[in-house]
Design a protein around this nucleic acid. Structure first.
Lengths: 229, 229
DNA sequence: ACCTGAACACCGTTCAAGT
DNA sequence: ACCTGAACACCGTTCAAGT
């Protein structure tokens, strides 16, 4: 029973690139990467396929736009004037949480990375992190390498974490995080001692670790390397 | 004009998982990720689709097997008993070169990473690097985070590099590496000074950098962080 | 300028049937 | 046990036709 106010909200009913991207993100969030299809998008938006193609060149561009929209939102505020280190940690955590909320983002981000390294998303992240690195009082010759290392670590680690979260849900939705970690750690402990001594040795650590804490630990580690050199 | 010796080689003509994976890798190398299709695979192997499905569950498994095969080869020898740092650099370079030779590996590696974090490839890399980290004389509590950071950096940076190589080829096959870097650097220098001050500042660095050197620089940076902490 | 929707080419996967 | 190949369901994309 929509009130007139709601109707007014729906009045801007015309198709637009924005509305399409929005619907795509929703679909990705709820149905995963394989759930984003021009057919269901067509139903959801109550139009024909051609209509979507009028606003968007192809599926790749749609995926890129969806990724871009979510990343832009995650990078948005920034807020206070903390130290460069704290800013970097904040940006990193923002991306970490975004990937956690939109697990498809992980794959997409590295795909963007691969397809057009300097398309739209990557430069935003690179610039955002790099600006803080340059404020870090380290020689300028190290900026490029340092920023690359940070960005690679952040995206890689966040992606890995999202993957863990997804596969945990898929494997057994009833089991909680602790249960999943426990099962994984146990699996590690049962690996062949000759082939996997290290992984076995580290299994206990993995059982009790906190994702965000561990993620930030890695950021600090790279930061330490940057400052020390 | 195949000699009898060659014929003997071709005698083991029966379909096998190994032969299928081999053909898949070849196809991926020459035609890219979108070139790997059950139809052309079927032609190449001169069989029917069902025959392939007898040996391989589905396309995902085939991709995983191809990735696994290439990574296993890249990680294979190891050789000398150098210092842990040197070993880590060697392993890193091995992966770097493998991704450079098989650009599809980059996407696939992070996809594997996402789909089944502890499927087959990732643990191999993790273990290989981790073993050296544990020999690094740093407290055991740091092993997990340190190894994760290294692996994330290595895969991320190598992937980025492969992506650059691919898009360089695609954009204009006639232009060489120096030309590509030059064009990219120029593009960076022409970015909006208000929005992208850092990227602009780092453009010159990017113009003259050497991929492998820069990659190893990042590895050293993370290693420094690990040892310093 | 923007949208419709049937049609096209192509894909991964299945399966009854063969050997 | 292993292979054949037609058939199925589904996909991204195009395009003549409408408004």
């Amino acid at each position: 029973m929509p009130s007139p106010t709601h109707r007014a909200q729906r009045r801007t009913d015309a198709l637009s690139r924005e509305r399409i991207v929005e619907a795509a993100v929703e679909l990705l969030d709820t149905a995963g990467e394989s759930g984003l299809t021009f057919r269901v998008l067509t139903e959801r938006l109550a139009t024909g396929a051609g209509a979507i193609y009028w606003h968007v060149a192809n599926k790749g561009e749609l995926l890129a736009a969806a990724t871009d929209a979510v990343v832009a939102a995650a990078l948005a505020p920034g807020g206070s004037q903390a130290s460069p280190q704290e800013e970097i940690r904040a940006v990193a955590l923002g991306l970490f949480d975004a990937i956690d909320d939109h697990p498809w983002l992980a794959t997409q981000l590295s795909a963007q990375f691969s397809r057009s390294p300097w398309g739209a998303v990557t430069p935003r992240i690179f610039e955002r992190i790099g600006r803080q690195v340059s404020a870090l009082d380290v020689p300028q010759e190290t900026w490029f390498t340092a920023t690359s290392a940070l960005v690679h670590y952040i995206l890689g680690a966040a992606a890995q974490n999202a993957a863990n979260a997804v596969s945990a849900r898929e494997l057994d939705p009833s089991v909680d995080r602790a249960g999943f970690l426990d099962a994984a750690a146990t699996a590690w402990e049962e690996l062949d001692p000759d082939d996997y001594p290290f992984t076995r040795a580290v299994a206990a650590q993995m059982r009790v670790h906190d994702d965000r804490e561990q993620f930030l630990g890695g950021v600090d580690l790279v930061l330490t390397g940057i400052i020390t050199r």
